[in-house]
């Protein structure tokens, strides 16, 4: 059997792995049988996706909430456009946040353009981490807001690949 998957098989593989690998001694073989390819080609294809950055992480996906990480705050900052990229990098370097993004302002309703996420086991821990961040990145005078989450209505991985299929069936 060939070591490469065709377009259709690759699409089917994306679909099959996005909900997780089968917990089986030979998970890639199980996947290969589902999509009609070889085990070797499945492994090769996943390797390629990791190399190209399409897959940014491949492994155990933890539900932080179940492990006691019940507190998370989205901290939003109004940073001048000239320094936002530099500051984003600094915040990343601090190691105190799990996500850091630039997003557009929507004036007059929303004037924050830098977003980061702090996860912790409780509110005090998150706030202490925020204080540390403000200290280490000199953010004391930067306008910001802290949005703690207080209810989780839905949490699951993004599902791109079955949407297409779902839509084409109606």
């Amino acid at each position: 059997m060939t070591t490469h998957l065709n377009e259709g098989q690759q699409q089917a593989l994306k679909c099959a792995i996005q909900e997780g690998l089968p917990i089986d001694s030979r998970p890639y073989l199980v996947l290969a049988n589902i999509i009609g390819g070889s085990e070797e080609a499945v492994i090769h294809c996943i390797e390629k996706w990791i190399g190209s950055g399409l897959i940014k992480r491949f492994g155990i996906v933890v539900k932080h909430h179940s492990l006691g990480y019940t507190s998370n705050a989205m901290v939003v900052w109004n940073v001048s456009d000239e320094i936002v990229d530099e500051l984003g990098e600094q915040i990343k370097q601090s190691g105190l946040v799990t996500l850091c993004y630039r997003r557009p302002r929507r004036l007059p309703d929303w004037n924050y353009n830098l977003f980061c996420m702090i996860h912790g086991k409780n509110r005090d821990q998150v706030l202490a981490q925020l204080d540390e961040l403000i200290e280490s990145c000199q953010l004391k005078d930067v306008e910001h807001d802290v949005l703690f989450s207080y209810k989780q209505f839905k949490q699951c991985g993004g599902r791109y690949h079955n949407l297409e299929k779902a839509n084409s069936h109606g």
């Binding site: 909900e19 897959i55 996906v61 539900k63 991985g157 993004g158 791109y160």
Partner: peptide, 23 residues
């Protein structure tokens, strides 16, 4: 690993796709 999934500590073993590249 099976028990970690059953007890909802682990949601899955697999890929985290890059949102930008995947859609």
């Amino acid at each position: 690993v099976e028990s970690l999934q059953q007890t909802d500590v682990v949601s899955r073993v697999g890929p985290v796709f890059n949102h930008k590249k995947a859609g």
